[in-house]
Design a protein around this nucleic acid. Structure first.
Lengths: 210, 210
DNA sequence: GAAAATACTTGATTTAAATCAAGTAAAGTT
DNA sequence: AACTTTACTTGATTTAAATCAAGTATTTTC
């Protein structure tokens, strides 16, 4: 979900386009972050670094904002964001964003709406990560990739198995086995990075049962 | 954290005081929620209901707002909130809140700041719940109770063991054993609902190591 | 204030998923 | 194109925490 049309236009005038290459860091957990980014093209992940393990809590497709967390807050990024593919962003100063929010009520409303939409997603993630078993966790990420990232029944990801395991919080081995089980059950078709959802009904059932 | 002084004053004029008795539901996950509440006195928990299990993601002390999630959003509560003790709230209409946000930039800023502070806390919760082992999970909730709920080294909770297990996402049995271990190690003193932090250093270490 | 119900604790056993191990496939590198 | 490195898969074993079981303590109810 993005901001309303007229707010987008206000921003257009202030935008500054930047590109990042595959694997590059957009913002780093624990460091000063004074920019707000809007993803125009590409794909990013946002993740929490804890000791040696990462928790990818979000994969964001074009149309997403990154960095709202630093608005009216200590400007320390609570997560790291890196790009999966060469990506194009509009970059804004958080200060400018804040001024706009303070001056334009409709803009403030749009930002809060966007923030709250993501908060809801995070709550869903908490349920998945804490309550569901292997099949449920995998089902959730597959549904997410199909419905909210690639917007298609079949898609070729730029996400490694290791990253899928960091998203689901399963070990790479367990993820690999779970993927095979779904394949054997004809719930999905997989071949390397190519995925096809064959039985969304069943996938939703796995997601629900946990 | 609360809103800035002058915004508080604007709200004062529009407030409507309500009280809830111990155990009562303030808002129910999945139902229409058009109110914003400010906790004046008491203690509440906000939790996600999933099948038969609850995930308590937040225990809020006086000075906290409940219901910001429904601002500029579908007004469906993503969680249930109930009170631990007889509690007193200021109740506001979300519509009124939204109008204030749109008309007053400083107010919008304060709301976003508050929202973002909680988002940061939720990220911390994700790390705790997905990465840490028993001792780490228990240490985190004990630190939270001491530093952000009761603001004291010793405190008597109105939270049951079952609820502590819903906060840490441990089974009641595992929680009980972990509490005993901390007691034996003289990290804390426990007697029923009375807790005392004896060794915060060690607790922080457990929190960090996981 | 006794009885019933619920909450809590402690010990034994089970289990889901992680880790360990070893191999295969794929992707970079020279 | 051959070599090296990294990514992925499959099987065997281990392990942390859940569940099961049974008892004790604490509330709640009448």
């Amino acid at each position: 979900m993005s901001l309303a049309k007229d707010q987008q236009e206000i921003l257009m005038k202030k935008q500054h386009v930047v590109t990042y290459r595959k694997g590059e860091i957009v913002c780093k957990q624990g460091t000063y972050a004074s920019k707000i980014l809007f993803l125009k093209k590409g794909l990013v992940k946002t993740y929490l670094e804890h000791h040696t393990k990462d928790i990818i809590f979000c994969v964001k497709p074009p149309g997403s904002y990154i960095g709202f967390e630093s608005l009216f807050n200590e400007r320390i990024s609570p997560y790291t964001c890196t790009v999966y593919e060469d990506s194009e962003f509009c970059m804004f100063e958080a200060d400018m964003f804040q001024e706009l929010i303070e001056q334009n009520g409709k803009f403030a409303a749009a930002v809060i709406a966007n923030l709250n939409m993501w908060v809801g997603r995070v709550y869903d993630r908490i349920v998945t990560l804490t309550q569901k078993q292997v099949a449920g966790k995998l089902a959730d990420i597959l549904i997410c990739l199909s419905e909210r990232v690639y917007f298609a029944q079949e898609f070729t990801v730029s996400i490694s198995r290791k990253d899928l395991s960091d998203i689901t919080q399963l070990s790479p081995e367990t993820l690999s086995r779970a993927l095979k089980d779904f394949k054997d059950e004809k719930v999905i078709a997989v071949d390397g990075k190519y995925f096809e959802i064959l039985d969304m009904e069943k996938l939703k059932k796995y997601s629900d049962v946990g």
